[in-house]
């Protein structure tokens, strides 16, 4: 059990000394995953809204495909993105391989289906509840959609956190498209993989603990945002 004690001590000393390399890695992890999350929300929430509240041909097929994509292994996503961004690939001329942008692209592909499918389920339930009322009140569809998004804000926040969790914790895709290059594309998870492969198990575990603390911090911030939302809604 001593390795856990050692890992905890290492984690705290890294945090307390504000280790520069560590801060850089944390910063890049957050930057990549939050950017991916933002883009995935911009793409995924409208798709979810469309799937949840409109009827169209092949709707169930689209939903089935997206649901299957939710379980796509990160390594496969990484490989597909690698093949496209490689200099010999379709988008090689953009020179995006081994950059944070490549990592963001891979994570967007990973988490957009999660955000789309989970939000579509939530919005579908809401639509079920409000459909008759909104027809009765003659609410225009765009307005109805906006209302659904606002009404579902707490549940959607949970969906977004799930997406963030998947992004920040995955290693397979960012390892392949980022290359785990020091000071350029090294993030928390690839650093953990690297330290593990060096046999630095205590340091790897310490980084894992810090990742956990980071996730807790983000969830706490989201809770704060949630209570801020509800105060503003009922404040006046």
């Amino acid at each position: 059990m001593s390795i856990f004690a050692e890992a905890t001590a290492t984690a705290f000393s890294l945090i307390i000394n504000a280790n520069a390399d560590l801060l850089e890695i944390i910063g890049l992890s957050m930057k990549v995953s939050l950017s991916a999350l933002l883009i995935a929300c911009i793409l995924g929430l409208p798709i979810g809204a469309l799937l949840g509240t409109f009827d169209f041909a092949f709707k169930n097929t689209v939903k089935g495909i997206l649901t299957a994509l939710m379980g796509m292994p990160p390594v496969v996503v990484g490989l597909i993105v690698y093949l496209h961004l490689s200099r010999s690939g379709l988008f090689g001329a953009l020179e995006l391989l081994y950059t944070p942008t490549a990592m963001i692209i891979a994570q967007v592909i990973l988490i957009t289906p999660i955000i789309a499918v989970l939000s579509s389920q939530i919005l579908e339930d809401l639509h079920e509840e409000y459909r008759d009322l909104f027809i009765s009140l003659v609410v225009p569809p765009p307005n109805a959609l906006l209302t659904y998004l606002i009404e579902a804000r707490y549940s959607l926040l949970t969906v977004i956190l799930a997406g963030f969790g998947r992004a920040i914790s995955e290693v397979g895709a960012v390892m392949i498209v980022g290359g785990n290059i020091d000071h350029l594309t090294r993030v928390m998870t690839t650093a953990i993989a690297l330290e593990t492969s060096k046999g630095e198990l205590a340091l790897a575990l310490a980084l894992g603990l810090i990742l956990l603390i980071l996730a807790l911090f983000v969830n706490f911030a989201a809770q704060q945002a949630k209570s801020l939302l509800s105060v503003q809604r009922y404040g006046g």
Binding site: G27, M30, K31, L34, P100
Partner: peptide, 13 residues
């Protein structure tokens, strides 16, 4: 708040 978070992460790059 969200804006500040993004700006602060942007500066890391």
């Amino acid at each position: 708040c969200l804006g500040l978070i993004f700006i602060s992460f942007g500066s890391v790059a």
